[in-house]
């Protein structure tokens, strides 16, 4: 219970933190008074992932060249790489990240976004990371990486828009 000598009120003995998932999510929205809903580009990560093909990189947020991509993780992904650091947050499920130090990156140093590599990467194995709900991993610049899941899971990637980034705002966002 709360301490009345602090804030002065009484609190519950425990609280339940609500997260979303592929199996269960609840979506809010924009109540318009004097505006256009499209200015807010309002979407939901789990709804986007539930309608995506495995490993598609769907932008849910964009600020100039930067994006947040949502990825439906299912099975084993192709190997990808980027010339800059990226960060992957496991929003639902469990995902293993495999990392290889690319001997020879196909990308220029200033290339933006991630690209899929054909076949197996050549280079030293860097190791593996086992992510669960709410965990965030570094995908280091110049590494090759792939994701492996036993069950459909959801990733949010902090990155830059690249040739494989999918923009489908009209499909994913509130429009009226």
């Amino acid at each position: 219970m709360g301490n009345p000598t602090k804030g002065g009120g009484v609190e519950h003995a425990s609280y339940t933190t609500k997260f979303g998932s592929l199996a269960s999510f609840d979506k809010g929205g924009v109540d318009l008074i004097n505006d256009d809903a499209r200015h807010y580009a309002f979407s939901n990560i789990f709804e986007v992932a539930s309608k995506s093909q495995p490993w598609e990189k769907v932008a849910v947020a964009k600020n100039f060249e930067y994006v947040l991509e949502v990825v439906r993780a299912e099975g084993t992904s192709p190997w990808s790489t980027a010339a800059h650091d990226q960060f992957a947050v496991c929003m639902d499920g469990a995902i293993t990240v495999e990392l290889v130090k690319l001997a020879d990156s196909p990308l220029a140093d200033d290339a933006e976004g991630s690209v899929t590599l054909g076949g197996e990467p050549e280079g030293a194995r860097m190791g593996k990371i086992h992510l669960r709900h709410g965990h965030q991993a570094l995908l280091p610049a110049g590494s090759a990486y792939r994701f492996v899941t036993a069950h459909p899971s959801v990733l949010m990637i902090q990155t830059i828009a690249g040739p494989e980034t999918q923009f489908r705002w009209a499909e994913i966002c509130q429009t009226v």
Partner: peptide, 14 residues
């Protein structure tokens, strides 16, 4: 006033 935005877990909004 322009709008009122309700965000729940997993929602993304600019």
């Amino acid at each position: 006033v322009r709008s009122r935005v309700t965000m729940k877990a997993g929602d993304v909004c600019a």
